[in-house]
Amino acid sequence: MKQSGGWLWRASVANLFFLYGPIAALMLFSFNASRLSATWQGWSLQWYRALWADQALQAAAVNSLWVATVSTVLALLLGVGLAVGLEGLPGRRQRQIEQALLLPLVIPEVMMGVSLLLFFVLVRMPLSLTTVIVGHALFNVPVVMVIVRARLRKLDPRLLEVAADLGASYWGALRYVTLPLLRPAILGAGLMAFTISLDDFIVTYFTAGPGATTLPLKVYSMIKSGLSPEINALSALFVIVSMGLIGFSLLLQRR
């Protein structure tokens, strides 16, 4: 094994360089003083200042936070319900439903976006921030379910038996035993769903009505209208916020 160790290590480090290099370069150049975004001309915070002053960007940020908050609450209510409710079903049925619910995570996002667009138009629901929220709550329900179920599997089933022996009803055991034990997982799932919602472009792109611009939609239109160092700055902020939220979420899930 020793003989191939060096080669494998080099290949692995090269992979990491491939994964991190572009993001690192992007973030570095967000501090570049030059308008010609790929030539380094000294440190500057001017692009961050430009972001701060951008009114349209602020409106988009407010929209994004609103969408992420409401869709996360919805996804938590529905997803935790599914995760806990599935436990009460016989094994075979449980597995079938769980697998079917994972399908939204596997199919290409474009399909989900387009089919939702079709649905909203056919039921005559005007596209707006509400339709975006519904779309986000759709793909986040399976995410929440998966994380909460992973935690449920690790719980000691005897705890529920004890609760039943002590005369707890189903809802009592759920309220005083299961849910408190699931709290870190639920919080972790919520943070994950919140981040995915903040980051989502495709489903938002197909379900947003006029005026319902979220941050990723704004970034997209900025990219389409020509590259500028401001996009680098905005991207850097995105990277930092996502990584922070996800890191926090993972910490909660591990507990």
């Binding site: 572009p22 992007l26 980051d199 996009i231």
Partner: peptide, 16 residues
């Protein structure tokens, strides 16, 4: 970790 950063941002990095 890179997977959890915004896909749009990661694609933009390559445009850059």
């Amino acid at each position: 970790i890179p997977f959890w950063t915004n896909f749009l941002v990661r694609t933009y990095a390559w445009m850059f």
